[in-house]
Simulated scan of single mutants.
Amino acid sequence: MHTVWKGAISFGLVHVPVKMFTATEDKDISMKYIHNKCGTPLNYVRTCQHCEQAVEWEEISRGYEYEPGRFVLFSKEEMDSLSEASKEIKILDFVDLTEIDPIYFQKTYYLAPNETGTNAYSLLMEAMRQSGKIGIAKVSIRSKSSLAAIRVMEGCIVMETIFYPDEIRAIKQVPNLPENPAVNDKELLMAKMLIEQLSTPFEPEKYKDDYREKVMHLIEQKVAGEEIHIRPEQPAANVIDLMAALQASLEATKPVKLPADEAAPAKPRAKRSTAKNKGAGTGS
């Protein structure tokens, strides 16, 4: 793994020297834009509209447009000085993981002890494991300040960068949300039954990227010179009756016995003979 950051975790006066590694990798299939006329890959060129020429990276500064057409400029050294001010993952608080909504999580990193930090690393990891708490920290990575959640995963300290609260858009901005949601009791019961039927322990290894597999198969076909046949688009099912959709979904999964009061009406049975019913009590 490639080290992306070096520094230390600090909590109180304790410093744990660590190295940071990216925990995830992008599996997207990379494709280039090609000029159809000649088959040449296209390049992205940084062009100055005023000078009408390509610009090299060493001639570029960062700028903030504080009003239309007017910028304040920052050199690379000025921007780097802000992130270099602290090579520290400073834990501010310890909280329960269940208190953090998943909307806050961004990217995951593995933290490994530096050559001199094994003992302190093990101490922090075991203390967090036994307490059941995770740390909320501040960190600067690649010129960006971020909050982070520090937790233990399979014998490794893991850091999840998380959004600041003002980076989360308010739910009230979402259009067309029902103000006073009302649901049918029978439909609700069936929906809960369907959820129960589909409930299972989370096993990430059983999920796969079907789209990526299809793209790779298509690439292999084209490399082999095979003719590609495009499957016609299937019309979407137009299910209007919500109860019918729920019933069909339940039938498509394992059968479940409905409660007596919610079960479908039974077919009428043939009347028993009077002789058999003689002597039977009647209920009210």
Rank of each mutant, 00 (worst) to 15 (best):
I219R: 00
E227P: 09
D209M: 02
A224D: 01
Q221M: 10
M216F: 06
I228T: 07
H217S: 15
R212F: 00
P235S: 07
K208T: 15
L218P: 02
R212E: 03
E226T: 13
R212C: 03
K208S: 15
A236N: 11
N238F: 00
R212H: 06
R231G: 10
I230P: 11
E213K: 11
D209N: 08
A236I: 08
E226D: 11
H217K: 15
G225L: 01
H217T: 15
N238M: 05
V223T: 03
I219V: 04
P232H: 11
E233T: 15
L218F: 04
I230E: 08
V223D: 04
K208D: 10
D210E: 15
D209R: 03
E226L: 08
R212G: 09
I219T: 00
A224L: 01
E227V: 11
E220H: 04
K222N: 06
E227I: 09
E226C: 09
P235N: 04
G225I: 02
G225N: 01
V215G: 05
V239I: 12
V215Q: 03
I228S: 03
N238G: 08
I240D: 04
D210Q: 15
R212S: 09
R231D: 09
G225D: 01
Y211C: 07
E213N: 13
E227S: 13
K214T: 14
I240W: 00
G225K: 03
I219D: 01
R231P: 07
E233Y: 05
P232L: 07
A236K: 12
E226H: 13
N238R: 11
H229R: 14
K214Q: 14
M216Y: 08
A224G: 02
D209P: 05
K214P: 12
E226S: 13
H229S: 13
P232M: 02
D209F: 04
Y211I: 07
V223A: 09
R231Y: 01
Q234N: 13
I219H: 01
A224Q: 05
V215A: 06
E226N: 14
P235V: 02
N238I: 06
K214C: 06
E213V: 01
H229K: 15
M216Q: 14
H229F: 05
P235R: 04
M216S: 12
Q221V: 06
E220P: 01
I219G: 02
I240G: 09
A224H: 06
L218R: 13
G225A: 02
M216A: 13
E227W: 00
H217F: 07
A224P: 04
E233W: 04
I219S: 01
R231H: 12
A224K: 07
V239L: 05
R212K: 10
P235E: 01
N238P: 06
L218C: 07
M216I: 13
Q221H: 08
P232T: 07
I230L: 10
I228L: 08
L218G: 05
R231A: 13
I230F: 05
G225F: 02
E233Q: 13
